[in-house]
């Protein structure tokens, strides 16, 4: 089958990626074989190429976010059938989905509703599920009223804004000047252009000096972050 691969261990740049003919995977007992329809592209896809992953064997097939149709099921699989429309976020240590077929363990899979396209489902995995974990799993939203989402135009940030809004939270987001207009379509309560404004000062104004209750940092140390002055004065409880 056709696949986008990292051919050799030393191939640590996007330029080294090649389309190659590789063996079609055979599902193990707890896996299904998926005929791939649409895949999502994410920053992690090139970062693992550049950083290398010790667990890989070569050629390694790239790609984490798969959608497609189940075409074979492993011996121990009972909940999934040939013909199911599925999507899943894969394990980066395993061969991936930038290929005609991929075999994945069933725990990651969901059935795609009839009114959701393969393309939409493929775009709701790596970044969206990270945002989902950051809003719906990790925090206790009791008494949380305000949320700061860094990089609200990004793959994680844009979903985090929408999920936080569904909870009725007041959402503030930081973006660079060129992305202000783009992020406006998500209706955050305030957009902070970190190139033009001081983030701490603006957050102090927006929260009456109380600080934001929840901060979702999708950028890390390299980002234009708030300082602890913008953190909540206490709690939240």
């Amino acid at each position: 089958m056709k696949a986008l691969v990292v051919a050799n261990q030393g191939d640590q740049s996007i330029n080294c990626l090649q389309i190659a003919e590789v063996a079609k995977p055979i599902p193990t007992a707890d896996q299904v074989l998926i005929r791939v329809h649409a895949v999502g592209l994410n920053p992690v896809d090139y970062k693992v190429v550049e950083g290398g992953v010790p667990a890989w064997t070569y050629p390694h097939t790239l790609g984490l976010d798969v959608t497609g149709e189940v075409v074979a099921v492993g011996a121990a699989v009972t909940d999934w059938q040939v013909g199911d429309r599925v999507s899943g976020h894969g394990d980066l240590t395993q061969n991936g989905c930038f290929a005609e077929f991929v075999a994945v363990p069933t725990y990651q899979l969901a059935r795609i509703p009839d009114n959701v396209s393969y393309e939409t489902a493929a775009s709701l995995l790596c970044g969206a599920l990270t945002a989902y974990t950051a809003v719906e799993r990790k925090p206790n939203l009791t008494n949380v009223r305000t949320v700061l989402v860094h990089a609200g135009a990004g793959g994680v940030g844009s979903i985090a804004i929408q999920l936080a809004k569904l909870h009725g939270l007041k959402v503030f987001t930081t973006v660079s000047t060129g992305k202000v207009k783009y992020v406006r379509q998500l209706y955050p309560d305030a957009i902070i252009d970190y190139r033009q404004e001081d983030v701490d000062t603006r957050l102090a104004q927006l929260t009456d000096g109380l600080g934001v209750d929840l901060i979702i940092d999708t950028v890390g140390k390299a980002g234009p972050n708030e300082t602890c002055a913008a953190w909540p004065t206490m709690g939240p409880w």
Binding site: Y107, L129, E136
Partner: peptide
């Protein structure tokens, strides 16, 4: 939970 979150998101 990866599959469950995926279902909820969809």
């Amino acid at each position: 939970d990866l599959g469950k979150m995926n279902s909820e998101m969809l």
